[in-house]
Structures are given as C-alpha cells and as structure tokens.
Nucleic acid binder design. Structure first.
Length: 279
DNA sequence: AACCTTCGCAACCGCAAGGAT
DNA sequence: CATCCTTGCGGTTGCGAAGGT
C-alpha cells in the first residue's frame, strides 16, 4: 500500500518511500546522527523535504518501533490514557514504549473510537452516552448538557488545566499555598440551583481557556489539588506532593459535576496565581 | 466476477511553540 | 523586541487490502 509518488514545485519527492530511500536515510542517521532535518535530505542524497524525512524516521524507521497489532492490553491502555489526556497522541505515546503517536492515533480513529460508541460510551468523555435532559429535573437556568455537546469545552478545559498544572510544576510553586487557596473537596453531586455563573465570570473563564496547551502528564493521581467545571465540562488537576508531576483529568459527567460559585472563586484565584507567575 | 464499503496505516498539511538571529 | 526558522503535534487524506453483497 502507499501513496502515489509525485514531485512538488520545488522538485521534492512526495508520496510513498522506497526501500532505497529508507536505506539512504537510515545510513545517514546511523553515521551522522539526528539533527537539522532541513539540511539532512540533501546531505543524505534524498529528494525529500526535511519534514518528510523526520516523519519517516519517527514513525517507521526508528529502531524499536512496534508495528504489530495492538494487544488487548495496549488497547485498554490507549482508552485509559485517552480518558486522562484526550487527543494528545504524543503524550499517550510517551506512556506506551515503542508505539508511535501516529500509530496510536490511527488505531483510535479506525477501531477504538467506534468500539466505544458501539458500547454506548462517548469517546470524547468516556462516559455513557445519555441524554441528561431526560433524566434531570432541570430548571431553565441550569447548565446541564448532553455528553455529545461537550467536545469543545472538554478539550478547552483540559488545556486550561494543563496550563495551570504546568505553571505550578515548572515554577515549583508552593504546594501549600496552592492547597490553601484551592482546598480540595470530595466530588459530589451539586444541586442544580447552585449552577449559576454570571456572564462576566463566564467570559473570564473562557478568555483564560484560550491559553494554549502545555502538558505535563502522569498516569496516577496522588493528590487532588483543584476541581473545576466550566459551563459544560469538569476536570481537576492533581499533583504529586513534590510538584514534579501534574496531571489533567477530564471529568465531564453529564449533570453530575457542575460549577458552584465557590468552585468558580477558587478557579479564578488560581487564575490569579498563574497570572502572577507569568508576570 | 464485479462492484462497493470498510479497514488499516503511511504520509501529507497547517499551525503553533520555542529557539535563533 | 521583532522576525525568521526549525521542530513537533494533531487532523486529515489517499490508497491498497480485506470483506461483504
């Protein structure tokens, strides 16, 4: 299988790699090592762009890459890590030795995602696909939403939490201070009449959510630091006591986890802390 | 046997972060 | 400080193989 070979305007070859090209790339890297992907193809005698060489090396030629079928255990791991990390394929790949981000991503899209849907699991939230409106005694002001509507917010929330996590971790911000401000509390169902968020607060939250992802991940959660939910989704940041690792975890669960004013205050507090750190 | 659909996966593209200048 | 360049990531596409009708 493979893509049709063609040449772009700059005369660079695109499409399927030949065995000879593979051999040339491997021989060059074995002799001169990695680095400067832009210059590499010319030096290696390849009519390819650096990007193409890099991709070929990382996803196919690099030693130790496992291209066999995913085992049931690996599939379970992918699902587990996806529930923790979302579509961060590179981060997931780091947890799975010898598997590439591309391979994991392909397997997710072609197989695992569909399998979850068939099992009645929302592949974005990893929660049962349910229409919470139907089961909720909601009022018009409540923020209950169906699972399927959470995609964007879920990702954004995870990004925000990642950013906060990274800030805390990279600066070794005093964990005690964070804890004092945030005060973790057991997750519990929240009455719907506590769900109101003013439009100004919501704007602030969403504004901050634009900050880009900066992930530091781990697979186990030792200490709950921060629980937050925005209008449609929930998540929390957890950290080890030494602040060395911080993990985001998307917790969207239909109408179970919701924002309270108290939680929002804490959310904004850590927002301020993060801003202080930035400045 | 021919056609169609789905699957699996390599490879491409656009975008953004971060370093270099 | 601004701009450019390189690298890395995630989404998407293209295509042969496999399976179904």
């Amino acid at each position: 299988m493979g893509r049709t070979t063609w040449f772009d305007d700059a005369g660079l070859k695109k499409g399927e790699w030949t065995a000879e090209e593979d051999r040339m790339l491997v021989a060059y890297i074995n002799e001169y090592g990695l680095g400067d992907w832009r210059a590499m193809p010319k030096r290696a005698g390849l009519q390819r762009c650096g990007k193409s060489c890099r991709l070929r090396w990382l996803n196919y030629l690099r030693p130790g890459i496992k291209r066999s079928k995913f085992t049931p255990e690996e599939e379970e791991d992918i699902i587990k890590f996806h529930s923790l990390l979302g579509n961060r394929w590179a981060a997931i790949a780091k947890q799975m030795p010898n598997r590439t981000d591309n391979g994991i991503k392909n397997h997710w899209h072609s197989c695992l995602k569909k399998r979850l849907v068939r099992s009645g699991i929302d592949p974005m939230t990893h929660e049962p696909i349910v229409n919470v409106k139907a089961t909720s005694s909601s009022t018009t002001s409540s923020r209950t939403l169906t699972s399927s509507s959470s995609s964007y917010s879920s990702t954004s929330s995870a990004r925000l939490l990642n950013r906060l996590a990274a800030l805390i971790s990279s600066r070794k911000h005093g964990l005690d201070r964070i804890k004092n401000v945030i005060l973790s509390e057991p997750r519990q169902a929240v009455e719907e009449d506590k769900l109101m968020i003013s439009s100004k607060e919501e704007e602030e939250v969403h504004g901050f959510m634009e900050i880009d992802d900066n992930l530091i991940s781990t697979t186990s959660l030792d200490a709950l630091l921060f629980y937050s939910s925005t209008t449609t989704t929930a998540g929390f940041v957890a950290a080890f006591d030494d602040c060395s690792l911080v993990a985001p975890y998307d917790l969207y669960q239909s109408d179970f986890y919701h924002e309270t004013d108290d939680q929002l205050d804490r959310f904004l507090d850590i927002h301020s802390l993060a801003q202080e750190d930035l400045s």
